[in-house]
Design a protein around this nucleic acid. Sequence first.
DNA 1: TCTGGGGTCCTAGGACCC
DNA 2: TCTGGGGTCCTAGGACCC
Length: 463
Amino acid sequence: MYALVDGNNFYVSCERVFRPDLNGRPVVVLSNNDGCAVARSNEAKALGIAMGAPWFKIKHLEDEAGLVGLSANFTLYGDMSDRMMSLVAGLGHQQEIYSIDESFVNLAGIRGDLIKRSHQIRRRVMQWTGLPTCIGIAPTKTLAKLANHIAKTVERKPGVYPEHIVGHGVDGSLSQVCHLGLLDVASKQLLFERTEVTEVWGVGPRIGKQLNEAGVHTVLDLVNLDPATVARRWSVVLERTVRELKGQPCIALDHEPPARQQIACTRSFGHPVTERHEIEQAVTEFASRAAEKLRKQDHRASALLTFIRTSPFRRQDEQYSASMVYPLIRPTADSTQLVKAALTNLARIYKPGFNYAKAGVMLMDLSPASQEQLELGDWALELNEQDACTTSEAERARMIVAMDSLNQRYGKGTVKVASAGAHRTTTLRPGQPDRNQRNWQMKQARRTPRYTTCWAELAVAKG
DNA sequence: TCTGGGGTCCTAGGACCC
DNA sequence: TCTGGGGTCCTAGGACCC
């Protein structure tokens, strides 16, 4: 049995903990540059504000309906999330943190009344963090998500589900806590019949539309499909969803999720940017931050992608979008090298005369640092005096660690890479590179010699 | 002149999630 | 004027090899 616990209107609830005056009012939390709504209070949802609605289109509701728009504070939400997650973990023995506001909990081996236990956890989270939550319980993760949806809907929209099933009062009702495992077949069928198929985890707008066209409108319709047919007509992914809805677990709990396979840092500018140096500045920042995330998970990257693009929303503008991958022969987490790579890419794809709206840096082909250490050792042996940098590998490593801890302590961007000198070398990394690296190497060989950078230009930017 | 078939790897693109 | 920022997984098709 699995539980899915999630925070209601999470970002808005976090804000309300410190701004109780916002209770009962329509509130949205806005993305970077106050671009669009990424969280909505129930009151804001009732106004018909969609997820992702651009602020400039809903701003008029400030005057008309008392709507409050808040700029996001993701650091705060992250902290609140950590506290919530540690409390929720007490619900069972294993927890998978699925997103900033959601976690699955494995309830195997937990005896006693799961509903009472869930309500206790909800009360504790509320008492200790001020965050409201809902909990769905079921034999599979997909069903637990569905149960959670039902728990929220019962609370928010009375009348959607038959009253004789969802009940009233706290412990006997499906509001806030919904345990599908305890319901009889007929009741479940009724709930499924009243739930749109697009509410199912794994069914997005596209597949939803296709299902509708095939006459599948409700969860009940989907459950009743034959999995083999679904696999043939749609995909093995949707087949898994159908099986999970039937109660057959196909998606396991990841209580120790694997390290990220890629790391991205991208932003919209908020206003059209044409100046090359402005984009260079942004790309430098993105590469540095991505590198920090990379070191935090103790990995190295073997490739870096830089992209820039104009805004598809500005129809009157000529559109341009380009990206380029920079292969790193020796996997690295060194900010200087990564910034250098990002800027080299940028120089190749940047074209003057366009109104740029967005840029980003992605690190790819990540591998654990431990593996890298060995390779680093081998590589260092091959360095001859000509190739050697002014600082040693060990010094560089110490500097990176110092940089990260300063940034962590005094805030993002306290210390950053300002510029980098490049020294051409042609040393190739020995050992057995994996397939991707070999591929990168081949491409690299056709393109440019490798750059090694020095740490002489590390600059303190703030304070 | 006739022009296989199976396997693997890689990439791009599409779908989904929050 | 102003339209988020992350991620994952799967599949189809091309390139290449034997």
